[in-house]
């Protein structure tokens, strides 16, 4: 990006100010701006952590062209809620999910957070979490999707997730034979 020569000094000042700020501004694909705690963003997203460390955060809104405003709002909301919900000791290591429920299970507030989302919003959020390298949010959203599949028949899953069965009958039969060990077929 070309910087106006006269603005050089101002640009420097701005950069220093940016480094001192404790929030970062993110810009969605449709141009909306969101503020998020720099600490939470760096801790929860490997991509944002890299951008913050590499100085590629833009004061006027860092472009996240792959993420729409609704998903980005949810991402920011999640970061802020997460920052408020964990004990201070956990902050020491970004990767530790401290005192969390066993085995990657979402905590109560995380469940509520994803339960209120529509399918579309959930899928957008899962993609945003994947794009931003947000391990915990990816766990929480993927867990939610898995719960929507759990205990359902193939037809029910196809219906819920709008999946076309593009197998032929013969192919399906072949698969069931090949994987009889997983279907407990006699």
């Amino acid at each position: 990006m070309e910087v106006d020569k006269g603005k050089g000094e101002a640009e420097e000042t701005r950069k220093v100010a940016e480094a001192d700020r404790d929030t970062v501004t993110l810009k969605s694909s449709d141009g909306k701006l969101f503020e998020v705690s720099k600490e939470a963003a760096a801790r929860l997203s490997t991509v944002l952590a890299g951008m913050i460390a590499g100085g590629s955060i833009d004061d006027n809104g860092t472009d996240l062209k792959q993420i729409g405003s609704e998903a980005l709002e949810n991402v920011v909301d999640y970061c802020n809620k997460h920052a408020n919900s964990i004990p201070s000791a956990a902050l020491i290591s970004s990767s530790i999910s401290f005192n969390t429920a066993p085995f990657k299970e979402p905590e109560e507030w995380e469940r509520k957070f994803v339960d209120r989302l529509s399918h579309d919003a959930l899928f957008d959020l899962v993609e945003a979490a994947n794009f931003l390298g947000m391990e915990r949010l990816l766990d929480v959203t993927c867990h939610k999707i898995s719960e929507m599949m759990k205990g359902k028949s193939p037809d029910q899953i196809r219906e819920v997730f709008n999946i076309k069965n593009d197998y032929t009958k013969e192919e399906l039969e072949e698969i069931r034979q090949e994987l009889a060990w997983a279907f407990y077929d006699d």
Partner: peptide, 15 residues
């Protein structure tokens, strides 16, 4: 990865 392994394998019939 969040499904019981049997259910995860059986998703192969979906499409």
């Amino acid at each position: 990865s969040f499904l019981p392994a049997q259910e995860a394998v059986r998703t192969c019939v979906l499409g």
